[in-house]
Design a protein around this nucleic acid. Sequence first.
DNA 1: TCGCAGACGAGAGCACCGCTCTCGCCATCC
DNA 2: GGATGGCGAGAGCGGTGCTCTCGTCTGCGA
Lengths: 228, 228
Amino acid sequence: MPTARERVRAELTSEITDAARRQLAEVGAAALSLRAVAREVGMVSSAVYRYFPSRDDLLTRLIIDGYDALGAAAEAADDPAAPPRRRWLAVCRAVRGWALAHPHEYALLYGSPVPGYSAPRDTVPAAARVAVVLGRILGDAARAGDLPAGTGERDPALVSDEALAVLGGDHPAIDEDVRVRALLAWSALYGTISFELFGHFTGSVEDGDRYFDRAMTDLAGLIGLRAR
Amino acid sequence: MPTARERVRAELTSEITDAARRQLAEVGAAALSLRAVAREVGMVSSAVYRYFPSRDDLLTRLIIDGYDALGAAAEAADDPAAPPRRRWLAVCRAVRGWALAHPHEYALLYGSPVPGYSAPRDTVPAAARVAVVLGRILGDAARAGDLPAGTGERDPALVSDEALAVLGGDHPAIDEDVRVRALLAWSALYGTISFELFGHFTGSVEDGDRYFDRAMTDLAGLIGLRAR
DNA sequence: TCGCAGACGAGAGCACCGCTCTCGCCATCC
DNA sequence: GGATGGCGAGAGCGGTGCTCTCGTCTGCGA
């Protein structure tokens, strides 16, 4: 059982991350100031360094939390009983909805990397949650016969085994071609959301909701997900 | 004709932007410091404010220059005599090549927006150059009969007239459906490049060059560009 | 041709930043 | 009960963007 000291330490740590998350949502990652976070929790700035060795470590904590929140939103939106094309669309909508609700957090996750280009390894499992959801949809669709049959051919140096395993599990009926197109659709999903959020669609896309649905439906077709 | 004072002013202005571009390439936009730029050109920091009213204005200048350089690369890679699918692939490769050669500049253009969310209006024409190239390929393909025939139906509130005009010109044979899918392919191109550059493909895509070619070919198929 | 407005560079200064170090305080463990 | 070590506060360092003032010198109009 944790001692009193450990308990208050954990409590203060989460109090700091909460304040940091609030500031991130307000001013964005670039303007997030460790000193301002310290002020908000009633500490002097140097005291925060007892809990986070640097501002970048605090940001890393926020990144992991962000991936987890986004992954949870995607998982909650997936109804395994629904037809695969509808599941794909629902998850895409959930990802976009989360991004629109948390633009600065999304930018922290999928915009320019903030700390000197080194994405910490700890973020990987949390970041994979959305991909795992999409992969499960693919696998279920293959089991139900809602994916085009493949030739079973494999290009061993193109995509890693782990990624292929995530994108549809070990179901042998899914062609590598389909899995690679799923990878493309996955990044296209984020390309679409990023363009909308970062303003590259201003002046061209007028109805964001309907354009997004159409684009994601086209992507479902590209993967080969049958409408059923 | 310009006076001596105007000449030296223009010269110093470009000297500042050159130094800023060098620093951008080295440390990235987030760490770009106006004072360091001033040091590099042998000025005191306050003197730079005679030329750029703020650090963000200096960044805006770099953004416009970046869009222009990227647009020029795309235009140079387009051979109007080649078959449309090959043209599409060549332009995509040129965009990716420029991004890999100038990662920080690309991040400045297509990553998280740096100044408080307000993309200056001046950047729009420069930013559109790549889209114009892709649109010209679409228009030429339609003229040559390399695009599927459309029904001519139109959804007036979905995408702006200007964007539709860019994506294939006034050629009536291009369906709105095709133009919307071209918009999707355009953002998917940037989604793919961003994922590669920002590290979201580490652990999954192993051969970046070949994956990119395959993805862009799939996108050409999505648009409907015939191989010929 | 002369004089003055205005452009210009330098310097000091303000408020803020990330981060380090030292110094008392107090809970915890031997 | 005393030593240890975690903790918060404070001062301080070098850096940042930006503002203001003050001499200087250029170039245009009278």
